[in-house]
Write a protein that binds this DNA or RNA. Sequence first.
DNA 1: CAGATTTCCTATTGGTTTGATATGAATGAT
DNA 2: ATCATTCATATCAAACCAATAGGAAATCTG
Lengths: 143, 143
Amino acid sequence: MKVTTKTIYALQLLLALADRGRVSRAPIQLREIAETYNLPFKFLEQIAIALKGAGWIHGQRGKEGGYVLSVPPRQLTLGDVLRLLEGDSSSKSNSHHSPQEDAIDAFLERCKAAMDDVSEHTTLADLLDDAARRRPADLEYQI
Amino acid sequence: MKVTTKTIYALQLLLALADRGRVSRAPIQLREIAETYNLPFKFLEQIAIALKGAGWIHGQRGKEGGYVLSVPPRQLTLGDVLRLLEGDSSSKSNSHHSPQEDAIDAFLERCKAAMDDVSEHTTLADLLDDAARRRPADLEYQI
DNA sequence: CAGATTTCCTATTGGTTTGATATGAATGAT
DNA sequence: ATCATTCATATCAAACCAATAGGAAATCTG
C-alpha cells in the first residue's frame, strides 16, 4: 500500500543514470547524483549496491569511477524495481485456509495483480520520457 | 504494497457480521468471533471500534450485547475498508517537484489507481459470496 | 437495585522495519 | 604511491505493528 523512500530513491537513481547514459558512456559518481537530487549519499550507496546485485547497473571502482546503467531502459520494468526493493510479499505459506481467509487473499491478490499490470508494463524508458515531458522546454538544452 | 493484519482482521470481522446478519439480527459478541476465527480478542476490539467510528457497524453494550452490521454489505466497498485501515497515504504535501519526482509520483499514482479500481468495485457482499463459493456445499447447512 | 457482561477507551509493551550514518576494506586511475 | 570511488557491514534512532492490560461506561437480567 505504501512505497518506501528507498524505492523512490532507487527510481531517481536509475532515472539519473538513464538520463546521463543517453549522452555519455562515462560512469557517474553517486556523490554527484546525491548532491544534484538532494539524496542522502550513504543511503544511496546501499541502494546502488542492491541495483548492482540485480544486474541493472555496473559499478566501476576507483578514481573516475561511478555507475553506469547496464540494461537498456526500455527493457527494465518498474515492476522489476518494485519487486526487488519492496520485498517479495508472496507469503503463500499460510497453511490455515478458512474460506473467508481464502476469499480475502484472493481479493488482495486481484488488487496486487492490477497494480502489477501497470508496473510491469511501465519501463524506465517510459519514466524517463515522462520526466522529460514535465521538464520545461527551455531546460532541455542545459545538458 | 503490504497490507497489515489489522486490515485482514477487519475484513474477517465484517465478513463474520455480514454472514450472521443474513440469518439473525441479534448482535454478535466479539469474544465469540475471536474464538471461532482464532483472532486476538483485544486486538479485534480496537478494530471494531474503528469500524464503528466509520459507521459500518453498531455496537450494543451490556449483557447480550455485541455488534451488528449497520450497512448493507453491497454498499460497503473493500476500498472503503482499505482506506480506513491503511491510512490515507495521499501525502500530496511534497512541495519539492523536480520533473523526475513528478514522473515517479505519477507512476505510483497510476499503480494506486489500478488497485483502487479493483477495491472500489468489490463490495463486502462480493467477498461474502466468494467465501460461500469456497465453502464445501455440505457446510452450507450448518447454520 | 445489584451484579454480570459487553462494548468503549487509552496506555503500554516487545518486536520489526525504515531511513540514515559510520567505519573501513577493496579496487582502479593517474 | 596516492587518491577517489565503490563495496560491505555494523549500528542507531525513530516509527510502525501486533498485541496486551486495565479500567470506565453502558445495558441487560434477575
